[in-house]
Simulated scan of single mutants.
Amino acid sequence: MVRKFTDEPVAEASLQRILRNALKGPSAGFSQGQGFLVLTGEELAKFWEFGASWAPETVTTAPVAIVPLSVKNAYLDRYAKPDKGFAEGDDSWWRVPYWDVDTGMAALLILQTAVDEDLGAVFFGLAPESVERLHSEFGVPQDHDPIGVVALGHGAEAGPSPGSSATKIARREFEDVIRFGRW
């Protein structure tokens, strides 16, 4: 994760590849319940006025922000089709909200493709009080729920930011996290 960016713009070809890869993520029932708001220029400046309240200030130097949006209704509609057979609009049987899981996987594809493109990126949360403003200021449909924000650009730092969690907390050991066959 990169938290400070240069002012070098992101090549359009790189941005297009990143966004196309985001569309290749898994999707329960092939519901495809994601949307992506891509912000640059004046729209991005307007977004940073309220959207970076939970992010380090240096993140606002990124020339691109991508807001992955989860669309629960796409999943409920898909699973009400005859080949799935669940009651229309019923989410009670979903133990896990796959609309959010699948959108998170799409965000991870954005992050991974950014690395492939020699770019830096960071995923951060959007403050709850910013969600309605995102909807109103950028015309985002009400049923599109932001799961976070990916700031994207050319990294201005090598390695973790000084003072970040990555410099203070050791990564958990493989043996502490992974079990084969039985916990």
Rank of each mutant, 00 (worst) to 15 (best):
K46S: 13
Y75N: 06
H144C: 06
K81R: 07
T61M: 07
I178T: 03
A170P: 02
A106D: 09
R20G: 06
V140Q: 09
L15V: 10
L109K: 10
V140T: 08
Q32Y: 08
L109E: 04
H144R: 10
W93K: 12
A158D: 14
K46T: 11
A74G: 01
D145G: 01
S164M: 11
T167M: 04
F138H: 03
E175C: 01
F180S: 02
W94L: 15
M105Q: 12
V64D: 03
R78P: 03
A13Q: 15
V38P: 02
E132L: 07
G148H: 03
H135A: 04
Q112T: 13
A52N: 13
L44N: 05
W54M: 14
T60F: 00
E8A: 15
E8C: 11
V101C: 08
V71G: 00
D91W: 10
A170Q: 13
S136G: 05
G139M: 03
T61S: 15
V122H: 05
G41A: 04
Y75L: 05
R20P: 01
R95M: 02
N21E: 12
A80Y: 08
D102V: 06
A62F: 07
V38I: 12
M105W: 10
F138R: 10
R182P: 00
I18R: 10
G155K: 03
T58C: 04
K81A: 12
T60C: 14
V67N: 02
A166I: 01
R171W: 00
W94R: 02
E43I: 00
K81I: 00
E117N: 06
A65S: 08
L119K: 08
S130R: 05
L19R: 06
V71Y: 01
K84F: 15
R3G: 11
D91A: 15
A28V: 05
G148A: 08
G104E: 06
P68Q: 01
A107T: 11
P141A: 02
L23E: 12
D90P: 09
E42H: 02
S31Q: 04
E137F: 04
D90C: 08
A166P: 00
G163S: 07
K4N: 15
M1F: 13
G120D: 02
P162V: 07
E8G: 14
R172Y: 08
S130Y: 06
S92F: 01
L134Y: 05
G85Q: 01
G181E: 14
V177H: 10
V122C: 13
S31P: 07
R182K: 08
F86N: 02
